[in-house]
C-alpha cells in the first residue's frame, strides 16, 4: 500500500489538474473546423470558374475568419491576464506550439478573406454599396483586392491548404507537447485533430445549399475522413497502452470502464462517427436524400471529442 497525503489545495491542480474548462475545447473545435473549411473550400473550388460553383460554395471561405474569431474569443476568455494578450505577439518561441499557433492564426485572416474575394461573382461585386465617400473607397479597395486575389488564385488555394493543415495539426500538437499528462503525450493527437477538423469542416459546409455535385463530392471526402479518424482513434489508444507505461494504461482505462466511457462511446464514436458514416454511405450508395442529420451529428461529435479529451487529459496523471 502507498498512501500519499498532500498538504496543498489549489483549485486548478488539486485533487486533479483543472486549468482548462469549456473555453479550450471550444477553441480547439472551432480552430479545427476553420482548418477543415480552409482545406476543403480551397480544394473544392480549385481551378473552377466562378459560374460553375454554387453561391454558398463561393462564399464559404468567408466563414473561416468568422469561426476562427469566435474560437479566439473563447481562448481570450480563458486567459487569466487578459490585458497581456498582446504578449503572444512580442515573442516567437519555437518550442511552444501556443506561440507559433498564435502567429499562424494571424496569417489565416488574409489567406481566407482573399480566397473568398477571388470567388466573388461580378454580380456580387456590382451589388457592393458605393454611396458616400467612405463606402465608395471601401468598394474600390475590395475590388482592387479581388483583382489581385483572382490573379493569384492558385497560390491562394495552396496557401489555404497549407495553413489549414498547420492550424488543424497545431490544435492537436498544442495538447501533445504537455507531456506531463499521459493522455495527451502522443504525436497522434496532431493528425487526429486535423482529420477530425476536416470532417467537421465538411459537415459545416453541408449545412448550406450547395450544388448536387458539390454535396456529393464533400460527402465522399468526408466519408474518407471519418474512416481515417476511426483508424487514428484506434491508433491513439493502442499507442497509449503500448508506450505510455502504467500512466498510459490508466489514461486508456478512463475510456474503457472509467468515468469517460459513456460520453466518449456514445457521443464521439457512435453518434459522432459511426451513425453519420452509415448515413453518408446510404446517401451515396442508396441515393437517400441528403439530410442535415449526419452533418449535425458530426459537429456535435467533433466538439465532444475535444471536450472529452481536454477534460480526461487533465484527469490523467
Amino acid at each position: 500500500m502507498t498512501e500519499i497525503e498532500l498538504f496543498r489545495n489549489s483549485a486548478p491542480i488539486d485533487p486533479q489538474l483543472h486549468v482548462w474548462g469549456w473555453e479550450i475545447p471550444v477553441y480547439l473545435f472551432l480552430g479545427g473546423l476553420t482548418a477543415g473549411l480552409m482545406i476543403l473550400t480551397a480544394l473544392a473550388g480549385r481551378g473552377l470558374p466562378r459560374e460553375s460553383q454554387s453561391r454558398a460554395m463561393r462564399l464559404l471561405p468567408f466563414a473561416a475568419p468568422i469561426l476562427l474569431s469566435l474560437g479566439m474569443g473563447a481562448l481570450f476568455l480563458d486567459l487569466e491576464y487578459k490585458l497581456h494578450v498582446f504578449r503572444f505577439y512580442t515573442a516567437m518561441r519555437p518550442t511552444s506550439p501556443m506561440s507559433w499557433g498564435s502567429w499562424i492564426l494571424l496569417l489565416i485572416y488574409p489567406a481566407t478573406i482573399l480566397l473568398g474575394l477571388a470567388r466573388l461573382s461580378d454580380g456580387e461585386m456590382a451589388a457592393l454599396p458605393r454611396t458616400g465617400r467612405f463606402r465608395g473607397r471601401l468598394a474600390a479597395i475590395v475590388s482592387r483586392l479581388r483583382d489581385i486575389a483572382t490573379s493569384r488564385a492558385p497560390q491562394l488555394e495552396r496557401a489555404n491548404v497549407i495553413l489549414g493543415i498547420a492550424l488543424g495539426g497545431y490544435t492537436g500538437i498544442l495538447l501533445g507537447t504537455l507531456g506531463a499528462r499521459a493522455l495527451w503525450s502522443t504525436v497522434i493527437l496532431g493528425p487526429l485533430f486535423l482529420v477530425s477538423g476536416v470532417s467537421t469542416g465538411a459537415a459545416f459546409m453541408m449545412l448550406f445549399r450547395l450544388g448536387h455535385e458539390e454535396h456529393a463530392m464533400l460527402r465522399r471526402w468526408d466519408t474518407g475522413a471519418i474512416g481515417l479518424e476511426i483508424v487514428l482513434l484506434a491508433m491513439f489508444f493502442v499507442e497509449l497502452a503500448a508506450n505510455g507505461g502504467q500512466k498510459g494504461q490508466a489514461a486508456v482505462d478512463l475510456f474503457f470502464g472509467g468515468s469517460y466511457t459513456g460520453p466518449f462511446w456514445v457521443l464521439v464514436v457512435i453518434s459522432g462517427l459511426i451513425v453519420p458514416l452509415a448515413i453518408e454511405l446510404a446517401e451515396t450508395q442508396k441515393g437517400w436524400r441528403p439530410a442535415i442529420v449526419a452533418p449535425v451529428l458530426l459537429l456535435v461529435g467533433g466538439l465532444a471529442l475535444r471536450w472529452i479529451l481536454v477534460l480526461a487529459g487533465q484527469a490523467s496523471i
Partner: peptide, 22 residues
C-alpha cells in the same frame, strides 16, 4: 505572463498556481 496556463498543465509536479492578479 498572459495566464494561459500552458505551464501549469506542463509541470509534472504541480508547482505552479494562478495568482489572483492574473
Amino acid at each position: 505572463c498572459t495566464g494561459c496556463k500552458a505551464c501549469v498543465a506542463a509541470c509534472p509536479y504541480g508547482a505552479r498556481y494562478v495568482h489572483p492578479d492574473g
